[in-house]
């Protein structure tokens, strides 16, 4: 079990600043889907019980219908919980030293990656669409000095605030450890736009 006070390879003065999961809207959709898929057949069975009861009392059809209903309910429960596990185990942690990206894809694929704050070159927040704008959630993209490496915080709450916090932490980290990235940038000759 992961303990936020004892992260892997944690440095003595390293503290967790942000602990992020996807916005609650992600699992609210899951709960609504589960409720609808459970309640629709249940309510239909209650409404049409007059027509259903002769079938349920049939010695062969009754047990089969009951078995199918059981399999349906257990299947929905399992799928919902698998999806919830996927949501629950997708975590992004920002500390005073690094950014950790932990993603669960299904039950058998798990990705853990991290980068030091000194490697961050660009942080972009993105809110795209009516519902994300209304509920204030979106993406944060973190570009590292390596061209292809890019972290993405998916559907997190308040992406603008998260972006600001990361930028502040990067600045503080540069002050603590020295601005190596800035010195490298200054050494490069500026190119004039065509």
């Amino acid at each position: 079990m992961m303990n936020l006070k004892m992260l892997p390879n944690q440095q003595p003065d390293e503290n967790v600043v942000l602990f992020l999961r996807r916005h609650w809207f992600a699992w609210a959709k899951l709960i609504v889907s589960f409720t609808v898929m459970t309640m629709v057949p249940l309510v239909s069975a209650i409404i049409f019980w007059d027509k259903l009861s002769p079938w349920m009392s049939h010695p062969v059809v009754g047990p089969i219908l009951s078995m199918v209903a059981s399999i349906y309910l257990l299947g929905i429960w399992l799928v919902t919980f698998l999806e919830f596990t996927d949501y629950y185990l997708d975590v992004w942690i920002v500390t005073t030293e690094r950014v950790m990206n932990i993603e669960q894809n299904g039950l058998f694929k798990r990705t853990m990656s991290e980068m030091h704050l000194a490697n961050i070159q660009d942080v972009t927040s993105e809110v795209n669409g009516m519902i994300p704008t209304f509920f204030k959630y979106g993406q944060v993209h973190i570009q590292t000095s390596a061209e292809k490496l890019r972290f993405e915080f998916k559907n997190i709450a308040n992406p603008d605030q998260v972006k600001e916090t990361i930028i502040r932490l990067v600045d503080e980290d540069k002050k603590r450890h020295g601005d190596i990235g800035g010195a490298m940038k200054q050494a490069e000759p500026m190119k004039k736009p065509a």
């Binding site: 992961m2 185990l89 798990r110």
Partner: peptide, 11 residues
């Protein structure tokens, strides 16, 4: 699922 939650869940 139980294993994953226990192994990778946050305390």
């Amino acid at each position: 699922t139980f294993y994953h939650l226990v192994r990778f869940g946050v305390k």
